[in-house]
Computed example of a mutant assay.
Amino acid sequence: MTDLNDRITELEIKAAHQDQQINDLSEMVSEQWKLIEKLGGQLTKANDRIESLENNVPGEKSSLLDEKPPHY
């Protein structure tokens, strides 16, 4: 009977460790997803900015953001 109790105890310990690992992995995935969404937003903004700079028509007055600062 002791052998059976030891095996059950060992299985319970393994199950508890696996539960903790699943929770840790779930947290990591959640944090990484938030980071992916943030980086996706930054990439969209950067792409929009690049497109606006590429579409700047020569001869038209450029925006103040495109002008060089006075110290140049």
Rank of each mutant, 00 (worst) to 15 (best):
M1D: 15
M1K: 15
M1C: 15
M1Q: 15
T2R: 09
D3Y: 08
D3N: 04
D3L: 01
L4P: 05
N5R: 15
D6I: 01
R7S: 05
R7G: 01
R7C: 03
R7A: 13
T9F: 00
T9A: 14
E10I: 09
L11N: 03
L11R: 08
E12A: 10
E12I: 07
E12T: 02
I13R: 14
K14C: 01
K14V: 04
A15G: 01
A15W: 01
A16F: 00
A16T: 09
A16K: 02
H17M: 03
H17N: 08
H17G: 00
Q18M: 00
D19P: 03
D19L: 03
D19R: 11
Q20D: 13
Q20T: 04
Q21Y: 11
N23L: 14
L25D: 01
L25M: 06
S26Y: 07
S26M: 04
S26W: 02
E27M: 10
M28G: 09
M28C: 04
V29T: 08
S30T: 13
E31M: 08
Q32P: 07
W33G: 06
L35G: 05
L35C: 05
L35S: 10
I36D: 01
K38T: 14
K38Y: 05
G40W: 02
G41I: 04
Q42P: 02
Q42L: 02
L43K: 14
L43P: 13
L43N: 11
T44F: 00
T44P: 02
T44G: 09
T44L: 03
T44Y: 02
A46F: 02
A46L: 12
A46V: 12
A46D: 08
A46E: 09
N47F: 03
D48F: 02
D48A: 13
R49G: 11
R49P: 06
R49C: 11
I50W: 00
E51M: 06
S52K: 15
S52C: 13
L53D: 07
N55R: 15
N55I: 10
N56I: 06
N56P: 01
V57N: 10
V57W: 05
V57L: 12
P58A: 07
G59D: 05
G59Q: 14
E60Y: 03
E60G: 06
K61H: 10
K61R: 15
S62A: 11
S63W: 00
L64P: 04
L64Y: 00
L65I: 11
L65V: 10
D66W: 00
D66P: 03
D66F: 03
E67M: 12
K68A: 11
K68Y: 13
P69K: 12
P69W: 14
P70M: 01
P70T: 13
P70N: 10
H71S: 11
Y72Q: 12
Y72H: 08
Y72E: 11
Y72K: 13
